Simulated assay, not measured.
Amino acid sequence: MNIIAQTEDNRLITTQDEEVQHIALDQIKANPYQPRKTFDDTKLDDLAGSIRQHGILQPIVLRQTIKGYHIVVGERRFRASQRVGLTTIPAIVKTMTDEDMMELAIIENLQREDLNAIEEAESYRKLMDDLQLTQQEVATRLSKSRPYIANMLRLLNLPTEIMRMIRDEQLSGAHGRTLLAVKDKRTMNKMAQQAYEESWSVRYLEDCINSAKNSKTSKQASTSKKKPKFIQQQERQLRDQYGSKVNISTVNKKGHITFEFTSEEEFKQLIQQLNAQYRK
């Protein structure tokens, strides 16, 4: 006999030759691997009202432990049943490993209707970290493309404040990915706040970022033209020698030579070159 268990977002799990049991609510605990920590009270009240009127139409799925049961699928129905005052709940008890529990909890979380882009990205990261999966393996398991997974994970590189804005639906995930093109975090936060306050579309935000970049490039070009030719020549020579962008500036008869690096590896390589030159 096949029994169909339903997830919180209408995904169906088929179990074979397993009977529905009525399990006491006080023996059931939440899935310890459940990434979802908060539940909408209004939606839980609505579900409780439905259960009060029609009962529980689909059993939840549990895993038996030494001290009772852990929820595999159906935590919202479990919580709503507590609100109604039920003492038992129909359930299917399945045998599964910790890894199975972990993966199913994360996948179920990914299928929530109210999932925001940051929560989605965090779920992909949790799958990768907890189950030691690559981006390609996550993409295959979830029937998504690897570039899609990679683009979602990039959102986790945003400043905390911008991630909060996406969680609160003040900005979309697409706004967040667009803002990643801004390298300066203060500028990024400022543009994010402005985009929220003025209801910028993603396209308009992109245009503003490109405009700011073009303006900066023009300013740098203008500054470069004002430098004496021999300084520009020295910058080119140092750049060729050390493989790094170099800026030489003079203010009030004081000069600065600045080397640019974009990673720790480039920094270490530059220091080694400078030390080797100093010892000559």
Rank of each mutant, 00 (worst) to 15 (best):
D184A: 08
L238G: 08
G49E: 09
N247Y: 12
A24Q: 07
A276V: 07
R177F: 04
K183N: 15
K29C: 02
F259V: 05
Q111M: 08
R186S: 13
R146Q: 15
I60T: 06
V202Q: 03
E75I: 13
I89Q: 08
K254I: 07
P35C: 06
A24E: 08
N116A: 04
N275H: 11
D240V: 06
M96Q: 09
Q82M: 13
T7R: 10
Q269H: 14
V84H: 07
R125V: 00
K29V: 06
R79L: 15
N252R: 14
E265Q: 14
K227P: 01
Q220I: 14
E103F: 13
V93Y: 10
A174R: 13
E161F: 00
M128N: 05
I89W: 07
R177Q: 13
Q193S: 11
R63T: 08
F39G: 02
Q82H: 12
G176F: 05
A91E: 02
R203C: 00
R177Y: 04
K245N: 07
F39I: 00
G176P: 05
I3E: 14
S172L: 05
H175I: 06
Q27M: 13
S201Y: 01
T42V: 14
M102A: 09
Q277C: 06
E19I: 09
M96T: 05
Q234R: 11
V72G: 01
S218Y: 12
R112A: 09
T87C: 05
Q194D: 04
I60W: 04
K37E: 08
Q194H: 09
P147S: 02
N189T: 10
Q136V: 15
T178Y: 09
Q170A: 08
N189H: 01
Q237P: 02
K126Y: 11
T140G: 12
D100N: 08
K219G: 00
F39R: 12
R36L: 03
T95F: 10
R279C: 07
Y124F: 15
N210T: 07
I149D: 04
I23M: 04
F78Q: 05
R11P: 00
Q58A: 13
D240P: 01
A195P: 11
Q132A: 14
M1L: 11
D168Q: 11
M152V: 03
S199M: 03
W200K: 00
V246L: 04
R186I: 13
S211F: 13
M101I: 01
L110D: 04
E235Y: 04
S218Q: 15
L47E: 00
K213C: 06
L270F: 01
D26K: 09
A276D: 14
R52A: 14
V73P: 00
R125L: 11
M191N: 01
N151Y: 03
G85F: 00
S249C: 03
Q21A: 10
E169I: 02
I118H: 02
R11S: 08
E99A: 12
E120L: 09
